[in-house]
């Protein structure tokens, strides 16, 4: 455990070496948020109300889900590149589990970038407080973070699966792109899941915990009964994704051909 914690710290340090890069990364998230903000402002100015959300709630939804979506851990494409080129051999000869290794690395790097986004969100609340709603109490914020971490493990595991397919297919960037598009839609990042068709199905699928559900918890729009129910459901999803990821890794390592010198 200490090894992976140090690995996360190491990656955080690595990510923090270029300040301007962190700033522009946050800028890209801000641009995405403002695009959604303006789109829904236009929709609300025509309709007046929308699908159980007030405009302030919708603006808050995008501010928070934008944060959750962009900072969810993901297994880097570097994984498949290392497998394809044989560079992974350098890691396989050390007492490291690739699943936890990449999780701690991406986790560390995400934390480095997250800091400036948190400052951005806090600034938005301070300057444009009228446009957003605040959670009723701190417990909702903590629960939202808990669900988001769970969603992060689920999405990380899914991306790890895809990257681990490189043991069989070598080049998997196309597969990763498909997963990203699925995540964008099924996480509720593009549009809240409760206002699209098949919502009953969509709010029980695993990627819902990446952004949609934690955001709803943050906003206090979920009952305690739902929280309990989704907590159990999320744990089951985590176990499934975690277990199958380790299984795919185990099988993949047998297929690894370690090309190159």
């Amino acid at each position: 455990m200490r090894v992976y914690w140090n690995m996360a710290i190491y990656e955080m340090k690595y990510a923090l070496r270029y300040r301007a890069n962190i700033f522009f990364n946050t800028m890209s998230e801000m641009v995405a948020f403002f695009a959604f903000f303006l789109l829904w402002r236009t929709i609300f100015s025509i309709n007046g109300t929308g699908w159980g959300y007030t405009f302030r709630e919708m603006a808050t939804y995008y501010l928070i889900s934008n944060f959750f979506f962009h900072h969810v851990p993901v297994c880097w494409n570097e994984f498949s590149w290392f497998v394809r080129e044989g560079i992974m051999s350098n890691f396989l000869t050390r007492p490291l589990n690739l699943y936890y290794l990449y999780y701690s690395r991406t986790f560390g790097a995400k934390w480095a970038y997250m800091t400036s986004t948190v400052i951005f969100i806090a600034s938005m609340y301070l300057i444009f407080g009228n446009f957003f709603v605040l959670p009723h109490n701190i417990a909702f914020i903590l629960l939202a973070i808990l669900f988001w971490i769970g969603g992060g493990i689920i999405y990380y595991s899914a991306s790890f699966w895809v990257e681990a397919l490189s043991f069989w297919f070598e080049e998997v960037s196309g597969y990763s792109n498909v997963l990203f598009v699925i995540k964008s839609f099924l996480s509720g990042y593009l549009i809240p899941l409760n206002i699209v068709p098949f919502k009953k199905f969509l709010i029980y699928q695993p990627f819902n915990y990446v952004a949609y559900f934690p955001t709803r918890v943050f906003m206090g729009k979920v009952s305690y009964h739902e929280i309990l129910y989704h907590f159990v459901a999320m744990l089951l999803w985590i176990l499934t994704f975690w277990g199958t990821s380790l299984y795919v890794l185990k099988k993949g390592l047998v297929k690894y051909s370690a090309p190159g010198g």
Binding site: K13, R17, F82, G86, I87, S89, F91, G261
Partner: peptide, 16 residues
């Protein structure tokens, strides 16, 4: 294990 590519340090900490 020192591979002929010798890339552990390079890939882990190129800028560090």
């Amino acid at each position: 294990f020192l591979t002929s590519q010798r890339r552990f340090v390079e890939y882990m900490g190129w800028d560090l």
